[in-house]
Design a protein around this nucleic acid. Structure first.
Lengths: 269, 269
DNA sequence: TAGATTGTTAATCGATTAACAATC
DNA sequence: TAGATTGTTAATCGATTAACAATC
């Protein structure tokens, strides 16, 4: 009755897949504390989710709990890891060894999750031969060869936005089928290649949105909190509080933003 | 008829808020290309979303488009920026100037989005006084004083996981109300404080999940793709392909993972 | 006016959650 | 057996999307 595309390979909702790493971390925390068995209620509390959601998520993987008892921490870690493919060896390439690439190469979170940083590339020939995290930085010209030799299918892009698309194209041509893009720009890849994006500033922007609303509580009550922010003026609508239907500009409004360097100088090549 | 908590401050769905930064980036891309006016169809294509979703999202902000014409790029950038609070000045503190903190301090994406890195802290006294991104690193003992003096309400945690909770507590005590946590551990904050988490390895784990499924297409057809991965054995279930209902272990199974350093040594203090 | 495109409605889809029967 | 907790059902909620009337 349940529709699954093929036996032994049931569809798992994306939302669930995205939470499995969170459960994994919570389980490791419990394991470090010496916990052998955990109930969905306890585990949910550590992971910061609703226990019904947790049980539903885990049920997509199989029946790995024991009614009346709970889940065996070690066994569940093993099963989730296997489901995520973390019990396989994933050699990973990082392209762009600027500040961020450097940090990522040294990021223990990758290694401890079953990923192995296998190759580092940079377009700057002055960096070639330098060692970072025990690996020699290679010039991007060697990319195709090295990717093929090492059998790398997952790559991380940490180059400036202007170069990101070119690097992605090159990676795809070399046989990479999964790309994690840290460059703050839109990158497109062909069908069959997975691309995920991490924008370090998006979360900060979301925080700013909520922070602004906190301060705006009670509408214009500037004294509600300490005035910590220097408010820039709204060129179109001097009183932003009655901005429900602001005039549309006959000509484009004066932008109040500093002429931002945007993100082209963000990541050193 | 529409329910909104207060006039001029309509509720905006979280999913929409999370996409506004994406639209903003797409609009900046268009602006750089010299585009003055854009239709929802075009903008949606650049942002990589459905055009109906885009229009619905924008409608939460107001009616900033012109029927039959489209959206004025400059004006829409201005309105989204204002909605996100990016037209305000947000001084930000970074705690933990290891590899990641260093990269974040230099990350142009913060600055170009209206954020101003205002203070850097580290627990290592040897780093105190060093300059990063034009700012002097201060010792965390000065945290309370500096946060108050500079009127900082947003902070970024880039310390090792073991110290993250203590730093968060300290930040909250100092008056910070929005925290972006890069430390791969669960951190809790009191009501009224916003906490968002960035786990650099989660996205990679999600990619691995899909990559594994790609290789598993056709079930056990090892030749479907180049065999690039060295498969470790499943200690419980030697043939993972018929793992629909694996035996639950009488005793916890042998973990095949290397005894991972986990994330305690991840980020240098 | 004719053509284009927004803003919004309403249908659909997927994700969350409470509740509980199954069962250890 | 009695108590506890899973795995699953079904109700609810929110997000997505197609379609189109409003209108520039």
């Amino acid at each position: 009755m349940a529709s699954m595309s093929s036996p032994g390979m049931a569809a798992i909702p994306e939302a669930t897949v995205a939470r499995l790493p969170v459960y994994l971390r919570a389980l490791r925390t419990l394991q470090d504390r010496g916990t052998a068995t955990v109930s969905s209620e306890e585990l949910a509390a550590v992971a910061g989710v609703n226990s019904a959601k947790l049980r539903k998520d885990l049920s997509f993987l199989g029946s790995y709990g024991t009614r009346g008892v709970g889940y065996d921490v070690e066994y569940l870690i093993y099963q989730i890891s296997r489901e995520l493919g973390l019990s396989l060896d994933w050699p990973v390439a990082i392209i762009g060894i600027g500040n961020l690439g450097h940090a990522l190469a040294n990021y223990g979170g990758f290694v401890s999750r079953g990923f192995r940083i296998a190759a580092l590339f940079d377009a700057d020939p002055r960096l070639s031969g330098n060692r970072v995290a025990g690996l020699v930085i290679r010039h991007v010209d060697e990319l195709d060869e090295v990717i093929a030799d090492l059998g790398i299918s997952i790559a991380v892009i940490a180059v400036p936005p202007t170069n990101a698309q070119a690097v992605a194209d090159r990676l795809v041509a070399a046989g990479v089928t999964s790309i994690l893009n840290f460059a703050p720009t839109v990158v497109t890849v062909p069908e069959g290649v997975d691309l995920r994006k991490v924008d370090l500033s998006v979360e900060l922007q979301i925080l700013a949105f909520h922070e602004q609303r906190k301060s705006a509580e009670g509408k214009g009550a500037r004294g509600g909190r300490t005035v910590r922010r220097s408010m820039r003026e709204d060129p179109v609508n001097p009183d932003p509080d009655q901005a429900q239907a602001p005039e549309r500009p006959a000509e484009p409004p004066i932008r109040q933003h500093r002429s931002a360097p945007d993100l082209n100088e963000v990541l050193p090549a």
